[in-house]
Amino acid sequence: MIGWARHHVQSCAAALRRLARAPLAVGFNVLTVGIALALPLGGYLALENLARLAAGAGAKPQLSVYFARDTGPPDVDRVRAGLEAAAGVRAVRFIGRDEALRKMQQDAGLAEILAALKSNPLPDVLVIDLAAEDPAAAEALATRIQALPEVERVQFDAQWARRLDAALRVGRLALTLLAGLLAIGLVTVSFNAVRLQIVTQRDEIELAKLVGATDAFVRRPFLYQGAAIGVLGGIAAAAIVLGAWLLLERELARLAAAYGTSFRLHGLPPSEWAAILAFSGIIGWSGAYASASKYLHAIRPR
């Protein structure tokens, strides 16, 4: 047992030494893995940030109820009272047509247009804050309000967030597929790297088998080599993504400032970075395992 553990340490050290001995070849392999992983990783980060944005905007689902122009204040009050009593409604805010017009006139660009109008074109509006984030319930409520004769139109303000959410779902699926395909590609990178290493170490492998090495013993350093290529590739991918990020973040902040909001990119928690490195390590290990199983078996001392 101790001997077994010792050999794991020795194999790992030997694998790393071998990698260090061929820095250029290893560097290219690592870079290949890194670039290929950076693609889905960057996509994932972008999607996560978009999703966060969508969640922030859609956190307060609202219904905007636009009354028909000829609705009088008593009807509005009646509808308002009814809605305040309805289930799932947290608050109802009234924006009168005169108040809305006043607000719009404060905007320099709109004031000119509004001045050209003879009468106030705006309707009375009720803004309803919904209690739950249940889209189906909100939808049902909207349908019910829409049926009222006084109501011209109901706008479900969380709708765009839901559309974005659906789009994000498609994006995530596409990314998963991409990551899956690239993972298979990366398995072959590790497979070939290990195959080459096995060929160059043929003499040593034969000798080890002659002095009583088991197949597992011979295979172990190659598995570590594959895993190391994977993990180093994962680190390279993280570096690439972080580099791109730093470049983007400043420009995004500037863009957000131009729109009068602030925007910050959100990174991944350490556990997810660790998971990504583990994933890339497993990819490298699998390629190495396939390669070692295939080619080591073929090496028999003569």
Binding site: I2, G3, Q10, L207, A208, V211, G212, A213
Partner: peptide, 11 residues
């Protein structure tokens, strides 16, 4: 050393 590594002897 190689045969001893193979048999897992203490270093």
């Amino acid at each position: 050393m190689l045969p001893l590594l193979v048999t897992g002897h203490a270093t």
